[in-house]
Design a protein around this nucleic acid. Structure first.
Length: 357
DNA sequence: TAATCGTGGAA
DNA sequence: TTTCCAAGATT
C-alpha cells in the first residue's frame, strides 16, 4: 500500500482511522476510562468489564463506585470473604459473576503476585473471564492487539457486512470480520470506539446512520435494511413457575432467612424460606412448607418477577414471632438494621417489601 | 450445542 | 403493556 493511499483511504473502505477520529471527538466519559493517552488501571478495567457483562452502563455506575471505594485494589478484594462480595453485588444480577470475581482476585494475588497478566491467553484462563473479557482487558488495559466482540460489535459488524446468517451461529464469522478491522495501534481505543458506536449511533432501533463515520462503506445501510441486523434465531420463552414465600418478622424486627445453595439460580444469595418454584405449584400445600408453627397471614396479591429464562409468581405468607423463637436448622435471624446490606437478590427484596405492605 | 444465569430501562 | 435487550461466562 502506498503512503498516499494510506493518507487518503477510499470512502468505501472500512477505515479504523475514521472510527478512531470519531471516537476522539465523541467518546463517552465513563468512570473506568482513563484520560487521553493514559493507561487505565487493569483492576479498574477488569472490574468494569465483569460488571458490564449483560448489564447496562447506568446500572453498573453506582456498583462500580462502591466496589472501588470499598476495595481499592485487587488485593483488597481478594482479602475479604465471598459473603462480603455478594452483599455488595446484591441487586446487580448474574451472581456467578461475583463469585468468579472474587475467585479471580484470589488467583491474581496468589498465582500472579497481585499483577494482572497482560496476554489474552493468560487472561482467558482466569475465573469469569471468557473470550470477550480476555480480549477487552488485553486491548483496553494493555493496548494489545485483541478484538473483543460484544453485542454492540456484533451489531455493528453484522450491518457493515450485511451478514445474513443469524446469531449465534454467525459469531465465528463476525469475530473474523471484526479482527480484520482491528488496527495494529490503539487496539484498546478501537474496541471501545466500536462499542461506543454501537451504543450511541449504531443502535438496535433507529440507528443514526447520518452521524456514523462508517455510513459510506456500510452494506446494510446501502441496502436500507440496517435495522434488521443482526439476524437472530428465535429463542423459546420460559414457562411460568409459582411458589410461596414465608416472611417471619420477629418482635424486634429481625427477619428469618437462609442461604441458597452455592450452585444454580441465585447461588449463595440470601433468601426468606420458600417452597420450590414449580410449574405445577399448588397453593393448597403451601402451608405444609412453612418454616415454623405459627398463625400465618396470606398477604393479598403476589410478587411477580422475571428471570432470564422464566417468569416467577410468588404468593407471600407473613407472621410475627416472639423473641424466644429459635431459627430452624439451616436458617438464621437477620437483624433489622442488617437487612439492607444483606445479600438479598431483588426478587427477595420484592417479597419482603410486599410482606410489609 | 443449548441451557442456565438477573435485572431494570427503553421503545 | 409487551418486547427487547445490556461491554457474556459456564457447563
Amino acid at each position: 500500500m502506498t503512503l498516499a493511499k494510506r493518507k487518503a483511504p477510499k470512502k468505501r473502505e472500512i477505515s479504523s482511522a475514521a472510527l478512531l477520529a470519531w471516537y476522539d471527538r465523541h467518546k463517552r466519559k465513563l468512570p473506568w476510562r482513563a484520560e487521553n493517552g493514559v493507561r487505565p488501571d487493569p483492576y479498574h478495567v477488569w472490574l468494569s468489564e465483569i460488571m458490564l457483562q449483560q448489564t447496562t452502563v447506568k446500572a453498573v455506575g453506582p456498583y462500580y463506585a462502591r466496589f472501588l471505594d470499598r476495595w481499592p485494589t485487587v488485593a483488597d478484594l481478594a482479602a475479604v470473604r465471598l459473603e462480603e462480595v455478594l452483599k455488595l453485588w446484591a441487586g446487580l444480577g448474574y451472581y456467578a459473576r461475583a463469585r468468579n470475581l472474587h475467585a479471580c482476585a484470589r488467583v491474581i494475588v496468589e498465582e500472579h503476585a497481585g499483577i494482572f497478566p497482560e496476554s489474552e491467553a493468560k487472561l482467558l484462563k482466569l475465573p469469569g473471564i471468557g473470550a470477550y473479557t480476555a480480549a477487552a482487558v488485553a486491548a483496553i488495559a494493555f493496548d494489545h492487539k485483541a478484538t473483543p466482540v460484544d453485542g454492540n460489535i456484533e451489531r455493528v459488524v453484522s450491518r457493515l457486512f450485511a451478514i445474513e446468517e443469524p446469531l449465534p451461529a454467525s459469531k465465528p464469522l463476525i469475530r473474523e470480520r471484526a479482527a480484520t478491522l482491528t488496527p495494529d495501534q490503539r487496539a484498546g481505543d478501537f474496541a471501545q470506539a466500536m462499542m461506543d458506536l454501537g451504543a450511541t449511533i449504531c443502535t438496535p432501533k433507529k440507528p443514526a446512520c447520518a452521524l456514523c463515520p462508517w455510513s459510506e462503506p456500510c452494506i446494510a445501510r446501502e441496502r436500507g435494511d440496517q435495522e434488521t441486523f443482526p439476524r437472530k434465531t428465535a429463542k423459546a420463552e420460559g414457562k411460568l413457575r409459582r411458589g410461596a414465600a414465608f416472611v417471619v418478622m420477629r418482635e424486634d424486627g429481625a427477619l428469618l432467612a437462609r442461604t441458597r445453595p452455592d450452585k444454580g439460580l441465585l447461588a449463595g444469595m440470601t433468601e426468606v424460606p420458600t417452597t420450590d418454584w414449580a410449574h405445577d405449584f399448588d397453593i393448597h400445600d403451601a402451608s405444609a412448607h412453612a418454616p415454623i408453627e405459627a398463625k400465618w397471614h396470606r398477604v393479598a396479591g403476589a410478587v411477580n418477577h422475571v428471570f432470564t429464562h422464566f417468569p416467577l409468581e410468588l404468593i407471600v405468607y407473613r407472621t410475627q414471632a416472639p423473641k424466644t423463637v429459635r431459627a430452624p436448622k439451616g436458617m438464621r435471624w437477620i437483624a433489622m438494621q442488617e437487612i439492607d446490606g444483606e445479600a438479598f437478590p431483588n426478587v427477595m427484596r420484592k417479597v419482603i417489601a410486599h410482606a410489609m405492605s
